[in-house]
Design a protein around this nucleic acid. Structure first.
Lengths: 360, 360
DNA sequence: TTGTAAGCGTTATCAG
DNA sequence: CTGATAACGCTTACAA
């Protein structure tokens, strides 16, 4: 039953040459005669030979595999990053092991262990929201495995990083709100312990400070970043508080939860209250009204992350210098924040009238 | 610089025992003294030992790795399947290498080759739309690697399969449309060469046939399944053809494209024309009007697929019997197909008034 | 241009 | 309960 797989030995034997020659031929080594190469290739095909990359990895001490840890794959933001990463790594001969931390520190630690055990050539990680201790990442470094962090990063580690310029993305968005004439604002977002929300708030505060408004003096809701939780919070909030002119939501999902609560109350967006999101999730262009948000170029982020890692790997760790790539996000103005007066006026920003969703 | 990683040999040496004992101790072998085990574990920690699973895999002839090929990871349907697969495979000690075919037959072939080279313990695949030849999958079988197909399957291969009962999902949906009083329908979907669209059309036709209507006699559009293409098609279609009472779209994305074209024309849904989708993408519950669609339980599909593979792997291939799991999808009735008269009436089907999106 | 031989880190088998 | 030994399939000095 369990037929043996052909090995280079088998090829060697049936060609009366040695395994080393076969190995070299298969790897297209320059000093092997063209004719021998062809013989080997032919025989390999004949025997249905498939290289055993496990053996090769063991011998070489490194696998042609990269590990990637994300909180979840079913987030457009992350799955697009994955696509970007693969578009750089695959052509370079690497393949990806993708792990999900599911926002759990323990799972992240387990993931790291299996990746180290797999002797991956490098690791890409966006840390879970729960992670507060970074010893597992230090361990990676201790094993001399190049590490690149993206999006959710920490200052505690001195490694290559790729991040979005959340401060400026948020600043630009807030400037837009100010230009529309809004002054009375409300912030909703995830905990500011995390770099992303921290920075988005910083951009918001900065823009407001420039016109003499103190962001902290207006309502600030920090909470669970799920649609459902935000929906519930908002239903309750609307019962007991006056309406702001505009809600700055640091997440599209939170914005969506708020929108559902608002519309259920019979309020109109943006007439009664305007709202903006962050991330440009696919649904942002599909809902009514279309949501003003910030595009993060996640696929580009994936490419940048992968490129940084490849450089690290090729540099062979002679004194690596931790580098940082910062990506500039882009404001996407749509209906949800446009004042009546300016609804018709065509800004030079993306307007999203035409369908812009991802294809299926 | 490049510090050597500790091996079981190192542990053995510093404990004056042999590598075999260390190996057994680390694997918690029953016939090793408790005290030796503890010595070994302690020393392992002390030396920062991390097992080398490459070496283990080489020795064992199999990796504890499963390969999975999907068209794209940034589709909720597929990324949820991945989540389901991992929830079964990880506890069983396997980790996943995820590959994307990007709907290209050639990439799929390449993916298969790298997975075979990695000596994965099994492969899960949902074939690309482009794939018409299945030799690469036969090669997998030839290498004695268990293969399970899911969602996009083919009859040409005699392997384990997991699929959705698209016929009945589509049938149920069509019955709902009929009950709402619609008769004059239009079908839009992907090419019926693919099992999913073929079967969805079959369910549609069957339900209509039961009331004496010939589905083929009404408009049928088969085309590219992207939102954008469908939008363009629909803009054009609306210019030259009379409006049906309802559009049965075999994909949520296509439905969304059609909706945008319809609304842009100033037409009201469902008053002027009703529409339904398929797959229950997250946006389906978020748009206005909320979209009637079919939930496919993708996470469950992932679990079922993984379970089937695990059984295959454990069965050690003594005459494997190809088995098939068929999942029953569920109709989700929402506003986009409800007739005025019945808008208030609460069916016992899921109505989707409360937010039902995935959390972020 | 090709052959020889050693070894990557484990685990399985057989012995004791 | 533990040890000795071989082997998994490949790559790579070094030699020829």
């Amino acid at each position: 039953m369990a037929k043996k797989q052909a090995t280079i030995q088998d090829i060697a034997r049936s060609l009366n040459i040695t395994a080393s020659t076969v190995s070299r031929a298969l790897n297209d080594h320059p000093k092997i005669k063209k004719t021998t190469k062809e013989l080997v290739w032919e025989k390999a095909r004949e025997l249905n030979y498939q290289p055993n990359s496990i053996a090769a990895s063991l011998r070489k001490g490194k696998a042609n595999t990269i590990g990637m840890i994300v909180p979840r794959v079913n987030r457009h933001f992350f799955s697009n990053i994955i696509t970007g990463v693969e578009s750089v790594l695959n052509p370079a001969g690497y393949n990806l092991i993708i792990c999900q931390s599911e926002e759990s520190e323990q799972k992240e630690i387990n993931n790291i262990d299996t990746l180290i055990a797999s002797r991956v050539a490098g690791i890409l990680i966006s840390i879970s929201l729960e992670t507060s201790n970074f010893d597992h990442l230090r361990k990676v470094l201790g094993h001399n495995i190049p590490l690149v962090m993206f999006d959710r990063i920490t200052d505690e580690l001195d490694v290559c990083k790729v991040e979005n310029d959340d401060v400026s993305g948020s600043y630009d968005l807030t400037r837009h709100l100010i230009e529309q004439g809004y002054r009375n604002m409300m912030w909703i977002g995830g905990s500011r312990r995390f770099n992303t929300y921290h920075n988005r708030f910083a951009g918001y505060r900065k823009a407001l400070a420039e016109i003499g408004i103190d962001a902290e003096a207006m309502p600030v809701y920090e909470g669970n970043i799920s649609l459902e939780t935000t929906y519930e919070f908002m239903c309750d909030y609307l019962l007991h508080h006056p309406l702001p002119e505009v809600i700055f939501s640091a997440s599209d999902y939170m914005a969506m939860g708020a929108i559902m609560a608002i519309q259920e109350k019979g309020l109109k967006i943006p007439d009664d209250v305007a709202i903006s999101g962050y991330s440009n999730e696919p649904f942002a262009a599909l809902i009514n009204p279309k949501l003003t948000t910030v595009e993060q170029f996640s696929k580009e982020m994936g490419k940048a992350t992968a490129r940084l890692l490849l450089e690290e790997i090729l540099a062979e760790r002679d004194e690596m210098i931790p580098r940082k790539t910062i990506l500039r996000p882009k404001l996407i103005v749509r209906e949800s924040t446009l004042r009546k007066s300016s609804q018709s006026q065509d800004t030079n920003k993306t307007s999203g009238t035409k369908p812009a969703g991802k294809s299926k």
